[in-house]
Amino acid sequence: MKVTIEENEETGKFTIKVKTEDGEEKTIEIPKENLEEILAKLPPNVEII
């Protein structure tokens, strides 16, 4: 699983794009305050880009 994290400076939010092993892609946008909480919940086999 690969996770790409991009900061949107205009909105102050982060866009998180997840690509699973089977090629499925999902995108979510979260507030900056929630980034550490989300990262802590990721499984250890995740590659963060």
Rank of each mutant, 00 (worst) to 15 (best):
residue 1 M to P: 06
residue 1 M to V: 08
residue 1 M to N: 03
residue 2 K to I: 13
residue 2 K to Y: 13
residue 2 K to F: 12
residue 2 K to P: 02
residue 3 V to N: 01
residue 3 V to T: 01
residue 3 V to Q: 00
residue 3 V to D: 01
residue 4 T to V: 08
residue 4 T to E: 05
residue 4 T to C: 13
residue 5 I to K: 01
residue 5 I to Y: 03
residue 5 I to C: 07
residue 5 I to L: 05
residue 5 I to V: 07
residue 6 E to K: 05
residue 6 E to V: 11
residue 6 E to M: 12
residue 6 E to R: 05
residue 6 E to D: 04
residue 7 E to F: 15
residue 7 E to M: 14
residue 7 E to I: 14
residue 7 E to D: 05
residue 7 E to N: 05
residue 7 E to W: 15
residue 7 E to L: 15
residue 7 E to Y: 15
residue 8 N to R: 02
residue 8 N to S: 06
residue 9 E to M: 12
residue 9 E to K: 15
residue 9 E to I: 13
residue 9 E to G: 11
residue 9 E to H: 13
residue 9 E to N: 11
residue 9 E to S: 12
residue 10 E to H: 11
residue 10 E to L: 12
residue 10 E to T: 11
residue 10 E to R: 10
residue 10 E to D: 12
residue 11 T to D: 09
residue 11 T to A: 04
residue 11 T to L: 05
residue 12 G to Y: 05
residue 12 G to M: 03
residue 12 G to C: 11
residue 12 G to N: 06
residue 12 G to D: 04
residue 12 G to W: 06
residue 12 G to Q: 05
residue 13 K to H: 10
residue 14 F to V: 09
residue 14 F to Y: 12
residue 14 F to L: 14
residue 14 F to R: 02
residue 14 F to C: 09
residue 15 T to V: 12
residue 15 T to D: 02
residue 15 T to K: 09
residue 15 T to E: 05
residue 16 I to R: 00
residue 16 I to G: 00
residue 17 K to R: 11
residue 17 K to W: 14
residue 17 K to V: 11
residue 17 K to M: 07
residue 18 V to I: 15
residue 18 V to T: 06
residue 19 K to V: 15
residue 19 K to A: 08
residue 19 K to T: 15
residue 19 K to S: 08
residue 19 K to W: 15
residue 20 T to K: 05
residue 20 T to W: 15
residue 20 T to I: 06
residue 20 T to A: 06
residue 20 T to E: 05
residue 20 T to D: 08
residue 20 T to F: 15
residue 21 E to I: 11
residue 21 E to M: 10
residue 21 E to L: 12
residue 21 E to C: 14
residue 21 E to Y: 11
residue 21 E to K: 09
residue 22 D to Y: 10
residue 22 D to E: 08
residue 22 D to R: 06
residue 22 D to L: 06
residue 22 D to S: 09
residue 22 D to T: 09
residue 23 G to N: 03
residue 23 G to F: 02
residue 23 G to W: 02
residue 23 G to S: 03
residue 23 G to A: 03
residue 23 G to D: 02
residue 23 G to I: 01
residue 24 E to H: 10
residue 24 E to L: 10
residue 24 E to K: 11
residue 25 E to K: 02
residue 25 E to I: 12
residue 25 E to P: 02
residue 25 E to L: 07
residue 25 E to F: 10
residue 26 K to R: 13
residue 26 K to H: 14
residue 26 K to E: 09
residue 26 K to N: 08
residue 26 K to M: 14
residue 26 K to D: 04
residue 27 T to S: 07
residue 27 T to P: 01
residue 28 I to C: 15
residue 28 I to S: 03
residue 28 I to K: 01
residue 28 I to Q: 03
residue 28 I to V: 08
residue 28 I to H: 03
residue 29 E to Q: 08
residue 29 E to C: 13
residue 29 E to W: 09
residue 29 E to F: 09
residue 29 E to R: 05
residue 29 E to M: 09
residue 30 I to Y: 03
residue 30 I to L: 05
residue 30 I to C: 13
residue 30 I to A: 04
residue 30 I to V: 14
residue 31 P to M: 12
residue 31 P to Q: 10
residue 31 P to W: 14
residue 31 P to L: 13
residue 31 P to S: 15
residue 31 P to C: 12
residue 32 K to D: 03
residue 32 K to N: 04
residue 32 K to L: 07
residue 32 K to I: 08
residue 32 K to S: 07
residue 33 E to C: 08
residue 33 E to G: 09
residue 34 N to Q: 15
residue 34 N to I: 13
residue 34 N to R: 14
residue 34 N to L: 15
residue 34 N to V: 14
residue 35 L to K: 01
residue 35 L to T: 00
residue 35 L to A: 02
residue 35 L to V: 05
residue 36 E to R: 13
residue 36 E to C: 15
residue 36 E to W: 15
residue 36 E to G: 10
residue 36 E to Y: 14
residue 36 E to I: 12
residue 37 E to L: 10
residue 37 E to G: 07
residue 37 E to N: 07
residue 37 E to W: 14
residue 38 I to T: 08
residue 38 I to F: 15
residue 38 I to M: 11
residue 38 I to H: 06
residue 38 I to R: 01
residue 38 I to S: 03
residue 38 I to A: 07
residue 39 L to N: 00
residue 39 L to I: 06
residue 39 L to R: 02
residue 39 L to G: 00
residue 39 L to P: 00
residue 40 A to Q: 07
residue 40 A to W: 06
residue 40 A to F: 06
residue 40 A to I: 04
residue 40 A to Y: 06
residue 40 A to E: 06
residue 41 K to N: 11
residue 41 K to S: 11
residue 41 K to Y: 09
residue 41 K to F: 10
residue 41 K to D: 06
residue 42 L to D: 00
residue 42 L to E: 00
residue 42 L to I: 04
residue 42 L to G: 00
residue 42 L to S: 00
residue 43 P to K: 05
residue 43 P to E: 05
residue 43 P to A: 07
residue 43 P to F: 15
residue 43 P to L: 09
residue 43 P to D: 05
residue 43 P to W: 14
residue 44 P to C: 11
residue 44 P to N: 08
residue 44 P to Q: 09
residue 45 N to F: 09
residue 45 N to A: 05
residue 45 N to G: 13
residue 46 V to D: 01
residue 46 V to I: 09
residue 46 V to R: 04
residue 46 V to C: 10
residue 46 V to P: 03
residue 47 E to T: 12
residue 47 E to S: 09
residue 47 E to N: 06
residue 47 E to M: 14
residue 47 E to C: 13
residue 47 E to Q: 13
residue 47 E to H: 10
residue 47 E to W: 10
residue 48 I to V: 07
residue 48 I to P: 02
residue 48 I to M: 06
residue 48 I to R: 03
residue 48 I to H: 03
residue 49 I to C: 09
residue 49 I to A: 04
residue 49 I to P: 03
